[in-house]
Amino acid sequence: MNTFEFHTPTTLDEAYRLLEAHGDDANIIAGGTGLVLFMKQRMVQPGHLVSLRSIPGLDSIRVEDGTAHIGAMCTMHQVETSPQLREVLPLLGETYRHVASVKIRNMATIGGGLSHGDPNQDPPPSLIALGASVVLSSGSGQRTVPLDEFFTDYFETDIHDGEIVTELEVPLPSPSSGGAFIKFLPRTADDYATVSAAAVVALEDGGRNCRDVRVALGSVATTPIRARKVEGAVRGRELTSSLIREASDLVQDEVDPLDDFRGSSGYKRQMAQVFARRALEAAVANISAVPA
């Protein structure tokens, strides 16, 4: 690994100043599970690391006004095991528990994971399906970016120079809704998915028709993707198993998988259809209050 200067700012303002002073020669480091690996492989060789670890207040979890606000420096294990989040957003814990292993989830932060922009990660499909956004903070203010617009290319995100992911905002699902995350893991339990899929469905008040739906997949393109054609085919209609099957077929036009050791592009395309269907079926099965 190259040598570098390790900075430990204690306020966000100090961090912004360091990022501005060192520009492209600086990298932000949170838990380090992504960045340190990249540095060990010499894929990045920053002269300055700006650690967010000593800035207080970035690891809080609060639920208010129908939204969960999760600090970017919360570890994945913290989110996975939070009783407060388990109560209102069970899909989060169900998703984060699939990431790598406990020792990695104790280090990796939710903000760091999203900033890394790896299309094979587990959380993005569920977070996109839940309609989550990230808060990006910089010396000139804050902006909020929905996660379905955040990932721009392979390991590329919409984070501008000088910006830091400070919070994840997840709207609480309405009553009569259900969600699911399914990870296809043919190799080992701690591997990245060959294909992953998440779905969140909400029924019309007192009805059986689908009022709202979001379906998202990971490991099927250079970014996590939202399957809008699948969503369009089921929205407003009754979620019968034949409709779900028909709609899931449409995902094959929306994915563009990379060939790798986890499967060929063609195989992943077929598995995307299978796992989009299973995620939708599981989301429907998880709806808490189905009217009689």
Binding site: F6, I29, G32, T33, V36, K40, R53, H77, K103, M107
Partner: peptide
């Protein structure tokens, strides 16, 4: 008190 992978942890980050 939490398990971590020390092979990808920076010593300076454990200050």
């Amino acid at each position: 008190g939490k398990i971590v992978a020390s092979c990808i942890s920076l010593a300076v980050a454990a200050d």
